[in-house]
Design a protein around this nucleic acid. Structure first.
Ligand SMILES: [Mg+2]
Length: 310
DNA sequence: GCGACAG
DNA sequence: ATCTTGTCGC
């Protein structure tokens, strides 16, 4: 295993934290996120709560917004159910909002702060990224994942002769989307599909453009020893000057067009990734990434149709 | 009101 | 990322 945390199940960790909240008390998404190790994950906690709504014996209703309002993308019926549960436990709830005092807030979580450890891991792993050019300019593949709740549908596509080939894979994600932690969510899918690919991999996301200079494209490149380039559709961080993406005095990427931002993953430099992408795709979003994306959407639609019928 | 964050 | 019909433009 290349990373001790690459298979880390944050949904399970979230559940274990929620189980620590005693009857009659509540915790906010922000408090849970802090216990996970990074306040940026607050919104992701609301998503996890929503995606875990079917879970049994987990007091998910005890997680509310800091304001006391019931969040987590609930339906009207779910708000009713949670209101009744909270009232049963002795709390006052009026129009979807818990009226509570400080003594009702649970903050004393027992935790190892996994996200903090992962940030440390990313910083360490970033030292293993190579910026020395060692990439195939002709054989290009692409990967992407789409989702229905926790269920992820992945595709790996590449061009052979004059046709596109795609392979798929679907499984549950064990990590939510958290900005700066995409690799813990999507790398598992990519690994399953592209492990044996010999070409250069385009990845829907960033490489060097990352708070710790170790985005999904960097992780994929380092772990699978492949040349990778991150191709994002929006800017995660940094400022743009003459199309170059600058961050902490470093040139980390390039804006190919309004919706295409590239950064090196592994085995390629910033300048070479720009030269290569402009030479190959001429400032246009790479078709192979669209092929991979469309394949994930098609698979998801087919599968959700089948799942609904059964 | 601030800040704004890949997928 | 996802929710979603028709509609505008090439
Ligand atoms: Mg994607």
């Amino acid at each position: 295993m290349s990373s001790p945390y690459e298979d880390f199940d944050l949904y399970t960790y979230f559940v274990e934290l929620v189980k620590q909240i005693p009857e009659g008390k509540v915790a906010s998404y922000l408090e849970i996120a802090k216990a996970l190790g990074d306040p940026v994950a607050a919104v992701s906690c609301a998503y996890m709560q929503s995606e875990l709504r079917e879970a049994q014996n987990v007091p998910l209703h005890r997680v509310v917004r800091a304001s006391g309002e019931l969040g987590g993308y609930k339906t009207i019926e779910e708000v009713r159910g949670d209101t009744a549960r909270l009232r049963d436990e002795g709390l006052t709830v009026r129009s979807g909002k818990v009226k509570f005092v400080d003594s009702h807030r649970f903050t004393d979580f027992e935790t190892e702060y996994p996200l903090e450890k992962m940030k440390g891991e990313q910083e360490k792993l970033s030292e293993r990224v190579s910026m020395d050019d060692d990439f195939d300019e002709d054989l290009i593949g692409a990967v992407d994942v789409s989702y229905d709740g926790r269920k992820g549908y992945a595709a790996f596509s590449y061009a052979e002769d004059d046709e596109y080939i795609s392979r798929n894979r679907s499984m549950d994600a064990n990590f939510p989307y958290i900005p700066g932690f995409l690799f813990y969510r999507e790398y598992r899918f990519i690994k399953q599909l592209a492990r044996n690919f010999g070409g250069t991999l385009l990845i829907d996301g960033n490489g060097l453009i990352h708070p710790r200079f170790f985005g999904l494209a960097s992780a994929t490149g380092v772990f699978l020893n492949k040349a990778t380039i991150g191709v994002a559709k929006s800017l995660l961080l940094g400022r743009v000057k003459h199309n170059w993406v600058l961050y902490r005095d470093r040139k980390i990427g390039y804006v190919l067009n309004r919706n295409t931002i590239i950064s090196p993953g592994h085995r390629i430099s910033v300048d070479s990734s720009v030269d290569f992408m402009i030479g190959k795709y001429n400032h246009v979003y790479p078709e192979i990434l669209k092929i991979a994306h469309n394949s994930t959407v098609k698979l998801r639609r087919e599968q959700t149709k089948i799942l609904e019928a059964s």
